[in-house]
Design a protein around this nucleic acid. Structure first.
Lengths: 134, 134
DNA sequence: ATCTTCTCATTCATATATGAATGATATATG
DNA sequence: CATATATCATTCATATATGAATGAGAAGAT
């Protein structure tokens, strides 16, 4: 009740993340996996793991492991970078695209629910306020 | 820019969590450790790990590990529950209380910063909006 | 061209989280 | 009372995240 606003914000965010996770679980995805697939589908071509890490705002060792799991799921495959023998690139598979599309559907449903829950407030003002936070 | 409001919210929350983590790191604490110490200091008496898990909204196996680490740091000690031989209770040590006090200081500084960053918005309205989200 | 330095992905150690399985003990039910 | 069920903390397997160390290879400097 008399909680600090930062805690309210974090609590609300965790709650929403829970909704996303639950929705994605129904299509056999986790949030990190869906996020990675989203980047790869958007890019629509093989992408170096470093670049993927940058887009996901995380360290490279994390992407190595995430791509391991995505590869084990058959959603992504690693290919050699022809122009740099150090490099490895990730490419989304057909199954990966399908899974991503399924994820997108359920994620959008959660977006709608959240918007509905915030129907009483000025959402653009709220969004502006949130985006001031760095 | 044209991002969904749920993502704005999650992004803002992660940013703030990062600030808390960085501030706490300066006093040798993590967010989970600080949260656990906060509960134990507030309670001010030995507390069963189950109860601690409930207060922290996490599963018991997580608390087992967290208390392992807190105990290794000398911030908490386990004691037997005299009324239930299955039970184990966690008790904050003197060092734990000191560390928690130090953590509270830096955490409050972050709260102030966040409030300052949101100075342009109606914070009670924002807080009410956030608290509608379940 | 060789040597240094940077960058790439991976591995390792660690922290945090979950959930299933386990063993010890309480509690409830016949 | 004996047996079944529930609860306690822990362990194990796993997912996610970080950062340090590593080995391979690219790029730059002399």
């Amino acid at each position: 009740m008399n909680e600090k606003i930062a805690f309210s914000l974090i609590h609300a965010a965790h709650s929403i993340e829970g909704h996303f996770e639950k929705a994605l679980a129904a299509v056999n995805l986790s949030s990190p996996k869906f996020a990675a697939l989203s980047v790869l589908v958007e890019e629509d071509q093989p992408m170096s793991l470093s670049e993927l890490a940058e887009k996901l705002t995380c360290v490279r060792s994390n992407v190595t492991q995430l791509v391991d799991r995505l590869e084990a799921d058959g959603l992504v495959k690693r290919t050699d970078d022809p122009s740099d023998r150090r490099g490895v690139r990730a490419e989304v598979t057909k199954l990966g695209r399908e899974r991503h599309a399924a994820g997108l559907k359920v994620v959008n449903r959660v977006h709608e629910e959240v918007a509905k829950q915030l129907s009483a407030v000025d959402q653009s003002a709220l969004k502006r306020a949130l985006d001031t936070i760095q």
